[in-house]
Each structure stands twice: as C-alpha cells, then as structure tokens.
Design a protein around this nucleic acid. Sequence first.
DNA 1: TGTACATCAGTGAACGCGCGTTCACTGATGTAC
DNA 2: TGTACATCAGTGAACGCGCGTTCACTGATGTAC
Lengths: 218, 218
Amino acid sequence: MAIAGKETPRERYRAQLRAEIKERAWEQIAVAGAPGLSLNAIAKEMGMSGPALYRYFAGRDELITELIRDAYRGLADTIRTAAASGADLAGLGRTLRTWALDDPQRYFLVYGTPVPGYHAPDNITLIASEIMDALLDAAQSAVGPAATAAQDTPLESHLAENRQWAGAHPASPTALRLALHFWTRLHGALSLELAGHFTGMGFDPAELYENELRHLTQ
Amino acid sequence: MAIAGKETPRERYRAQLRAEIKERAWEQIAVAGAPGLSLNAIAKEMGMSGPALYRYFAGRDELITELIRDAYRGLADTIRTAAASGADLAGLGRTLRTWALDDPQRYFLVYGTPVPGYHAPDNITLIASEIMDALLDAAQSAVGPAATAAQDTPLESHLAENRQWAGAHPASPTALRLALHFWTRLHGALSLELAGHFTGMGFDPAELYENELRHLTQ
DNA sequence: TGTACATCAGTGAACGCGCGTTCACTGATGTAC
DNA sequence: TGTACATCAGTGAACGCGCGTTCACTGATGTAC
C-alpha cells in the first residue's frame, strides 16, 4: 500500500500517462474543436491501442469533463495569481485576454457554445464562483469603500436585491455591476475576436479591448 | 422549360422539400447542436432513404453552409425591418435579443464557437456588412450630426483611421464606436445568457441587457 | 534473498453503430409531336 | 387526344470509415512471506 503523501512509481506513471493523454486531447481540440476529440485517435498518436485508455479514463465523457474542469481551474489560478501580485481590474482583464489568446479553443471550451444536452458537474460551479470572488475583490477596490450606499442606476438596485451569485462577498452594488460588466463586456469583445469575426475589418481588437478596460471603472 | 418568373409544379415541389429538409435540420440542431446534424437522420425523420437528400443538397457541408447563410440572412432582415419601422439603437438591441432567444442554437450557429477548419463563403461577409450598415445608421442617428468632428477617446481616433469595415458609410468616429459597442457588449451579455452561464446566479439577464442598451448612447 | 502470488498495464479481436457518399436501377411525372 | 420519349424523384444495396466500448487474455511489475 502506498504511504500517504508518497507516490509509488506506479502512481507516478499513471499520473504521467493521464497528463499525456490530456495533452494530446488538447492538441486534437485545437485542430478540430471539441466535437473532433476521439479516444482512439489519441491512443494511436501515443502508439497504444484504443482500449488501453480505459485504464486512465472511464470514457470519452469523463475525459472531456476533466478537460473543461482543468481549463476552468487554470483560468481561476491565473486570475488569482494576477490578483495576488497586485493587479487591478484592468490588469485582470489583460490577464484574461492573454489566457484566452494563448489557446482559443480552451477558452471556448469554457465559455463557448454549449452542447444542448451536457450539464457541467458541481465542482465547476465552485471554480466559477472562485473567479467571481476575485473579480468582486478587484471591483470593490476600484470603486473604493466610499460610494457603498448610493445606488443610482436601475441595474445596481436590481443587483443589490439579487446578489445570490456574490455569495457572502461584501461588494457594494456598484462593485457588483462592475464585476458583471467586466465579465460580459470582455467576453463579448474577446469571443468575437477569437471566433474571427473581426478579421478583415481593419481595426485592432486590442484597442477595443483596452477601451473597455478603461471604461469599466470610467 | 419553365417560363421565367413562373414556377413549374416540379420546381415548387423541389423548393418545398428543400425547405422541409432545412426545418428538420434546425430541429436536430436544437437538440444536439450543429455537430449532431446528420443527413441520414433527417431523411429517416422524413420517411425517406438517406441518398434521396442528395437530390436537394450536394452534401452535409452544403446544407450546413446554407443554414448558416439563412440564419444570417434572417437576422439581417429582422434588423433592417426593425430599423425601417423606426427603431433606434436600443430598439435594434431588443430586436436582436428577441431573435436570439427565439432560437439560441441559431444564434450560436452565427456567433458561436467556430469549427477550426471551416471558413464562411463570401456572401456571408456581404450580409454581415449589411447588418453593420443598419447599426451604423442607428448609431449615427443616436449621436446626431453635431459631434462629427470631435474625437476625444483613443478608441475613436483609432477607428477614425481604421474604418475599412464601415465601407462607404459616413459614420462619425463616435458612431463607429457605438456600433462596435452595440455588437460586442450585447453579444457578451447575450451569449453568456444563452449558454446558461447566468442560470442560478439569481439576477435577471434582461435587466443587465437593458442597462447596456441605456449606456450605449449614455 | 528467493519464491509465490496479486496487481495492473496494455493487446487484439470483436460488437454494433451511424456516418457520408456512390451507384445502378425503378417508377412516376412532365414534354413534344 | 394519344403515343413516344426525356426528365427526374426516390430506392436499396453497398463501400469504407471511425467511433466508443467490452472482453478475455498476456506479460510485466510490485508485494508478502
């Protein structure tokens, strides 16, 4: 039996192979998108037979679910690391864009077109709220503690009364609105850019993005 | 031979069947997304054999391309009709949301995750610029002819110098920025809503959307 | 240290499936004289 | 109006493919005495 905290060689080997399978999976997704992911093709690329992969994943669905979870996890870590080293809201925005451009299909696996049937497992919801927490922190810092009371816009009063998604975070209504705008506006600019809808239009997507970052905090 | 402008019964029948095939295709896409679209399954649902469909479409790719084109065409017509009956920029925004909610998968076929290999044919670009034209008209109306000269923000001066995408449209830099924001911000809010990322968060997506509409023209 | 056993990685054959697509053919519908 | 021909819709069989997944099995690696 393995001593707690120490990996046996077999466990290390297992972990390595699981990691390699995922890497190949990402390569496939980059080429043909998530629908083009195939266990048999991964096995062939690794010089193994198809059924061998069933030692490492229960099936295609489990693999794809884990890829999504890893992508989410990676984004959350990236955001939190940036926040921990002092990035403000605009800084987090740039971090997000860098992460997205680094692997567009990974971004789309998280925020892209959903497969009608598929429902994400619970732990993904947890990671999502982790990200949201970091955004709320940064949003609150941007707003400052001063304007906590004033709720001028209709959206802010609506959010003040419907703040389940913020959990226990003590963000002011303005901060709630800012975090939401961060998410939706940056996703809008980013996903259209990544999907290629701006190509041939002649302007620089980075300029648009920076403009959104600037106007978040106004 | 058919007399120009008059359809023979056979031509009418052909057109009808093509339309029915597309309808069934949309039903399938609604159930399993675009990757789940299958010619054989459509044929079976229509009580025909698979190869029969090849009388009407050269293959799966042609069908899917035509669906995308139809979706784009429909959106452009919807937007233009709304504009023609006097809708302002916010009105066009609401029209867009209604159209998207009416069939989320149709929206995603146009603006969703791209398949890495696929490239849209030229006529789609034409439709896209038709939509952009309507947006620029509405944006210019919202801005008014007054502030045509002033370019205060960095984004506006960038757009003033990179306006290929506006074609010959005489929109002011501010109008260019407005049209772009319309597109990216509304797409951001809308696509996250349609993808289900707001479910369980507790706030009303319509409130967020209306807020964006309000702040477009500020 | 050496032997006996358990664990586990990976193979190869097989199943059943649905896919897109081609091809030769039948039968109905329309056209021309 | 009636006959001869051309057009075209749809069928059924077939091809080749790749998919996910199962199963019984081999051979190597680790474990216990």
